[in-house]
């Protein structure tokens, strides 16, 4: 009996700008069910961080409770990590981000963690525009506790044990757009060609970036009629656009016919190039995004791609006018500026 990932790697693996190979971004071997969509998302995160040449120590991965929240163990072993109480990851991320704005914050959550127990936390992190990537591995069931219906289970759907779901599903992307999220996308664990550039763009976004990733639960919710199954998603996949993420120093090489392409310049100088698959739609226009989403929902389509982005996004640090550097780099001189400064501050209140 064995379940050990060998240490040998392909001898000709490509290296990124830091000289790392992709395996330098891997984690421990997954203990999730074989074929779990979450593992594909983990692999897409590994791929994205490798391609972006992120120094592993510059990233913090945070999660709550659930199958999704186990995954940080399975990627980026050399990065920081925090596994919080159920549904409380957004608070931890907010606090960490306040303390050290220099790290990249990657939150991983699930439909239970975000749409049920952590809903309050989730919407407030959106509202505050915390600068983080928030990935929801959305499988439409409580996989870790044997597949009960969750808040994103289809209305009228059945759990594997036979329980009928009487309640409408919460659509996290619509909710996020409603709450003023500045970057909202949806993708599918089985489509890395789309998912990887979306993760990269989400990392580049300055502010809260939600990626709702449909991730089939092979054990409890991969029935053909479930909107979260491999078969259903593949049959009803409707993408808003194909997306290329172009880092700052690279040239844009793909060109599309006029009117079908949109370039979105990101805060860090990189560019997202969208190839729109439907005209009359603009990812920078919140109304058109909502309309498009509702239309897809009515047609039973799984609309994927970048749904909405606000390139002018102001994150919480900007709104709060916080200090420019991580708190741990502040020394005594800055923290205790002396009695004359105290006098001046006190004087303001007189």
């Amino acid at each position: 009996m064995t379940y050990i990932k060998p240490k040998f790697r392909h001898p000709e693996l490509p290296k990124n700008d830091l000289g790392y190979v992709k395996s330098d971004y891997e984690g421990a071997i997954s203990t999730l069910c074989a074929g779990c969509g979450h593992d594909s998302i983990s692999a897409a995160i590994v791929q994205s961080c490798f391609e972006l040449s992120i120094e592993p120590h510059r990233l913090a991965k945070l999660s709550g409770i659930g199958c999704s929240s186990k995954t940080p163990t399975y990627f980026l072993s050399n990065s920081h990590g925090f596994n919080s109480v159920h549904g409380r990851m957004p608070s931890i991320a907010t606090g960490a981000n306040m303390a050290n704005r220099d790290l990249i914050y990657l939150g991983v959550s699930g439909d239970g963690d975000s749409a049920s127990i952590g809903m309050g936390q989730f919407v407030h992190a959106i509202r505050k525009n915390v600068n983080m990537v928030y990935i929801v591995m959305n499988n439409g069931c409580y996989g870790l506790t044997k597949g009960q219906n969750s808040a994103t289970t289809d209305l009228g759907g059945f759990s594997k044990a036979g329980g009928l779901n009487h309640y409408p599903a919460i659509d996290l992307v619509s909710l996020a757009i409603e709450m003023g999220a500045t970057f909202v996308g949806r993708s599918f664990s089985g489509d890395k060609n789309q998912l990887v550039p979306m993760i990269k763009a989400a990392i580049a976004h300055q502010g809260f970036a939600l990626l709702d990733v449909v991730s089939p639960c092979v054990t409890f919710n991969n029935k053909a009629e479930s909107t979260k199954s491999y078969d259903y998603v593949r049959a009803h996949l409707e993408a808003t656009s194909t997306i290329d993420y172009v880092p700052e120093k690279e040239e844009i090489t793909v060109s599309y016919e006029a009117g079908m392409s949109a370039l979105v310049e990101m805060h860090d100088g990189s560019v997202i190039q969208l190839h729109k698959l439907a005209p009359n739609w603009d990812p920078r226009d919140r109304f058109s995004a909502v309309r498009r989403l509702q239309k897809a929902q009515a047609n039973g389509e799984v609309l994927t791609g970048l749904l909405y982005i606000d390139p002018e996004s102001k994150d919480m640090h900007e709104l709060e006018q916080t200090v420019d550097v991580p708190l741990n780099s502040l020394r005594e001189a800055e923290l205790c500026p002396g009695s004359s400064v105290l006098e001046r501050v006190n004087a303001e209140f007189r």
Binding site: K5, L13, S23, G35, C36, D39, S40, S42, A43
Partner: peptide
Amino acid sequence: IECDACMDVCPTSC
């Protein structure tokens, strides 16, 4: 079912 699990786990990217 094209879940990519084998592709993701393969240590030598085969």
